[in-house]
Design a protein around this nucleic acid. Structure first.
Length: 204
DNA sequence: AAAGTGATTGTCT
DNA sequence: GACAATCACTTTC
């Protein structure tokens, strides 16, 4: 898992995470979901990243930890989940922006009581559905209740690249194609109903 | 369907 | 005191 998150550029990792399974152990059983949407954040050179110019603060310091470290920070009243990539000292990460529930959907809907179509199609929404706050920040995936399952995977039929969401006034970094999502999947933020493939959800 | 607005709350200067 | 890797709701086309 550590090598999956460090053996190639972070952009490639962000794309390769699509279809991998996220697993959370809870008191009422496991919650699992396939990753449908990600964004790459490229560290010191990336004007849209928290680690831009290697500026370290209390909030972002776990970005300098090794691949597999969980980085969770608060945005307004919500929490956002990132997975740190690359070796220690290289502050890159991937933001998880969408997941498709696989098991434990009832628990997720209890945590976030909205229609299924609106349950996990956004970075703050999916954390509410999983019932997570920033407690896991700084923990390695290998030891946390949250983990990456590289064995139970689905294959995206097509991966779409686009600019990242919410990155404004950051010159070329605003339009850089660093967001990746499964074409046709309904659990992706800001996608039109027309583009959804309700039969396959974009999986092969 | 798209664009605009206000809520919300910690973080950083 | 300004601002943010969002969300839900309203307005408008």
């Amino acid at each position: 898992m550590q090598s999956f998150l460090s053996s190639r550029p972070t952009t490639e990792i962000a794309a390769a995470l699509l279809g991998k399974q996220l697993r959370l152990q809870t008191a009422s059983g496991p919650l699992t979901a396939w990753i449908t949407e990600t964004e790459a954040y490229l560290g010191a050179n990336d004007a849209g990243a928290h680690a831009y110019q290697n500026h370290q603060t209390a909030r972002n310091r776990v970005l300098w930890q090794p691949a597999g470290t969980i980085y969770i920070y608060q945005m307004r009243a919500l929490y956002l989940l990132n997975l740190v990539t690359q070796v220690a000292g290289t502050p890159e990460c991937v933001l998880i922006r969408g997941i498709e529930p696989a098991s434990g959907v009832e628990q997720m809907q209890h945590n976030r009581p909205v229609p299924l179509a609106n349950l996990t199609n956004g970075p703050g929404k999916l954390m509410q559905a999983l019932g997570l706050d920033k407690t896991l920040n700084g923990q390695p995936l290998q030891k946390a209740t949250l983990s990456l399952d590289l064995d139970h995977v689905r294959q995206p039929r097509q991966i779409i690249k686009s600019p990242r969401i919410g990155i404004v006034n950051k010159a070329e970094w605003t339009s850089a194609p660093l967001r990746f999502y499964v074409a046709g999947n309904p659990f992706v933020s800001k996608i039109g109903r027309k583009t959804i493939d309700s039969h396959t959800h974009g999986w092969q």
